[in-house]
């Protein structure tokens, strides 16, 4: 017996940080930068969101610190790959390694704990209750979410508008498609790339803040692969914001499906594989079907041609 409403509700909650990271990743992808450092950006922001909230005793200061941490990591990343021409893959992977080690290490000097730090529950991200939403059947799942979750759902639309209806977005797309042409057209491609990466960092910062402050704690490694999930979602969506909304929701809902099925006795390992199996199928199946149907069309066209010829 499947509880579709709570499946969707949990899916939305689970997809929110992934969506934020994905939107950031999408901006980088638009200027043809394949950013594998999303985990590092987000984990660093998780840590500093907690530091900010705890030190300033205010959850919104935490969000701000998270965003700043994301931007800082993005600055380092962009300087290294755009200015110093470091291989982007290696730079990204080493940022991930560095951030994991650094956040784990910093827990001792800053909080005098190891492994995790739990804050008082007053520093949790507050949820907003929109009264009338409860009465609408499906949309009611959107009720009682934090403002960052709502932002994550609105961002695809905002980015769609910015990317396809503003000059800034146009510059981004041109830079990504053909950098020489963009330069010839007078676009400052370097500035565009930097801006895209800094926005990427800021959005990952929001994601990190959402992840950490909704459970008002930091745990070593708490991003748990969400950065790579977001990357996969964006690549699956062909870097289109609205399609990316769909693919992120697909990941969120399939994860919530595996949570819902967790008590039915199936192997927890196979259940954990569900989101990835779904993503793989979503990536490969449409193309395979198209390939097969193209082949069939080709074969039937050949058969018709042979029949015509022999008549």
């Amino acid at each position: 017996m499947m509880d579709w409403i709570s499946l969707l509700e949990l899916g939305v909650r689970h997809a929110a940080p992934i969506l934020l990271i994905a939107m950031g990743c999408l901006l980088a992808q638009k200027v043809s930068i394949f950013n594998l450092a999303l985990e590092g950006f987000t984990l660093f922001s998780c840590f500093f969101a907690v530091v900010g909230a705890f030190v300033f005793k205010n959850v919104w200061m935490g969000v701000l610190c998270g965003v700043l941490a994301g931007v800082l990591t993005a600055v380092i990343y962009s300087v290294f790959i755009l200015q110093l021409q470091v291989n982007p893959v290696i730079c990204a992977l080493s940022i991930n390694t560095l951030v994991t080690g650094l956040t784990r290490y910093l827990l001792k000097p800053i909080f005098n704990t190891s492994g995790r730090f739990v804050m008082p529950s007053e520093l949790a991200l507050p949820t907003i209750h929109i009264g009338f939403l409860d009465s609408i059947p499906v949309v009611s799942v959107l009720n009682n979410k934090s403002v960052l979750v709502y932002l994550s759902l609105l961002l695809p639309f905002i980015l769609y508008y910015v990317l396809f209806h503003t000059e800034f977005g146009l510059n981004m797309r041109i830079t990504g498609l053909n950098e020489e042409a963009a330069l010839a057209a007078g676009v400052n491609t370097k500035k565009v790339k930097y801006t895209a990466l800094l926005l990427n960092g800021a959005l990952c910062g929001l994601a990190g803040a959402e992840l950490a402050l909704s459970v008002y704690m930091f745990n070593v490694g708490m991003t748990n692969g969400r950065g790579f999930t977001a990357l996969a979602a964006v690549t699956l969506a062909g870097a289109h914001p609205l399609v990316a909304l769909g693919t992120c929701m697909l990941f969120g809902v399939s994860e919530s499906l595996s949570i819902q099925l967790s008590t039915s006795g199936y192997s927890a390992y196979l259940l954990g594989a569900i989101p990835y199996a779904m993503a793989l199928t979503a990536a490969l199946l449409p193309r395979i079907i198209r390939l097969v149907s193209n082949n069939m069309k080709k074969k039937s066209a050949e058969r018709q041609a042979i029949e015509l010829h022999s008549n």
């Binding site: 995790r116 992840l211 909704s214 459970v215 704690m217 745990n219 070593v220 490694g221 708490m222 748990n224 949570i259 967790s262 008590t263 006795g265 927890a268 390992y269 259940l271 954990g272």
Partner: peptide, 11 residues
């Protein structure tokens, strides 16, 4: 009974 497949993910 449920297994959450992670020891580091409070969310």
């Amino acid at each position: 009974v449920a297994y959450c497949n992670s020891f580091t993910d409070p969310t």
